[in-house]
Design a protein around this nucleic acid. Structure first.
Lengths: 214, 214
DNA sequence: TGTACATCAGTGAACGCGCGTTCACTGATGTAC
DNA sequence: TGTACATCAGTGAACGCGCGTTCACTGATGTAC
């Protein structure tokens, strides 16, 4: 690791907190450097302009978020071969880890950026869209595997269900922030867990055997 | 209606669109008056400072939103005495009206403000919290009435369910915005409808008779 | 090991612009008597 | 109906500050020979 990487990381960390509290437009470079303890030209050495800060922020957030999700759901898949059980374990772990965050989940940068997209250039906007799509894809794949074993009720759609799961995370973060009650997010995730169990448990009574398509 | 009220309304309308696209902090008064066609002092005649614009924006949004929700779910209650049917009709109407919006739902101002709360004074922040709480209360009451007739599965909680419904709306708006596909929101609302039917239909087979507590 | 050069990680000063806010003023409309 | 006054819905000019960005420069570290 280069020496400057630590500075860059410090800037990104400070910037993320500010963006989630005030929005990207109201996060001033002046304020960031004051907190990070360097000069303005020091900042511009690391980021050629403000849009590059946005790219850096998003990249960092996506990486951390992917790690979180893969840790939780990957662990679930380690612990159970049954895709439903694996997914439920993933949700439980997510809820536990979210509950363990001292002041709650800090906020979703993708949501924040979605609500300020006119501030960014096309590259950043496309990155926001890709990130959103890839979370849904991740969930769709898992839910699809479950649906092969535990058939869904007929009017259900795996893609819509994936979006609903994603919405409960994003919506839970908003609720917890708006009502200043960090518990609400993990509670919602656990509630979602109950829900998923119900959805896949309602079509037939106990479909424990894998159904193989003819 | 006073003459100035039309101007005030025009300012608020322009400001809302800008806030939802760029955030409150990056919405400049200069830009609003350019579009509204009046001078800066004209703006300050209507709003004594920028935080009063925020209050005005939120007040207007809350009013419109309440009207939307009460129109949809109130109509549901007119059309059916059964609280579940009434709620399902409310969801269907919501989905239809959302689908009819030419460029989709413009965005939730409460979400936007939640993600920029350090920009506002305490009064505005409390208004944001109250608004969020009152949507949940609205849903909790309706879902509670349903739960008296169609018992919920034992591990379900009406309050958590109300929050989940609220999350699906907020999350659906984000998804539609992020993926630039306005259809996603009404689809999610209809999917939620399917879901609610499943939840209240799973405890017993056909509980058509009202259960009266001993 | 010494020297030459390149890259890294910044500093310091200056820039022009747009921002929110204030203030003194004004013409049109409404109200009292 | 006329006059006096008050309120409404703004205008125009000025303010100081902070913003993002640029540019020429620099001392420390790394690399080649």
């Amino acid at each position: 690791m280069r020496k400057g990487d630590a500075t860059r990381e410090r800037i990104l960390e400070i910037a993320e907190a500010s963006v989630l509290a005030k929005g990207f437009g109201s996060t001033s470079i002046e304020e960031l450097i004051a907190e990070a303890g360097l000069t303005k030209s020091g900042f511009f050495y690391h980021f050629k302009d403000k849009n590059e800060l946005a790219r850096g922020l998003l990249g960092r957030y996506v990486q951390q978020n992917e790690k979180f999700i893969e840790d939780a759901f990957g662990r679930g898949e380690e612990l159970s071969d049954d895709p439903l059980q694996a997914f439920l374990i993933g949700l439980t772990l997510s809820a536990e880890w979210l509950a363990a965050m001292p002041s709650g989940h800090p906020g979703c940068l993708v949501t924040s950026m979605t609500y300020q997209d006119r501030l960014f250039d096309r590259e950043v906007r496309e990155l926001v869209a890709q990130t959103t799509q890839s979370s849904i894809d991740f969930l769709r794949v898992r839910l699809g595997r479950i649906a092969e074993v535990y058939p869904l009720p007929p009017e259900y759609d795996v893609e819509q269900l994936a979006m609903m799961v994603s919405s409960v995370f994003d919506g839970g973060i908003i609720l917890a922030k708006a009502l200043a009650n960090p518990c609400l997010l993990p509670q919602q995730v656990l509630f979602l867990r109950t829900h998923i169990k119900l959805v896949f448990g309602s079509a037939t009574v106990r479909p424990r055997l894998k159904l193989v398509a003819a």
